[in-house]
């Protein structure tokens, strides 16, 4: 069981680069990269909120539950 973050999918849909998102949400590239590669252990509501705001999406569009 795992929670997958579909950040790369949303970025592709919005035709936005990771560095662009990094600038807009004020999160370092390193942290966004951790998030994108599913290495993150947790995500703050504030982070999720700012990503959703910039990408104009719902948390459900970013997060997905996968039964391994």
């Amino acid at each position: 069981m795992a929670i997958i973050i579909n950040l790369d999918v949303m970025l592709a849909k919005r035709k936005m680069s990771l560095s662009e998102l990094s600038e807009k949400v004020n999160i370092t590239m390193a942290n966004l990269s951790i998030l994108k590669t599913n290495k993150a252990k947790a995500i703050r509501f504030s982070t999720l909120e700012s990503i959703c705001e910039v990408l104009e999406c719902q948390p459900g569009d970013l997060l997905e539950f996968k039964d391994e």
């Binding site: 999160i27 942290n31 966004l32 951790i34 998030l35 290495k39 993150a40 252990k41 947790a42 995500i43 703050r44 982070t47």
Partner: peptide, 8 residues
Amino acid sequence: KIESELTI
């Protein structure tokens, strides 16, 4: 510590 470091 690892968990806190990997909390974005």
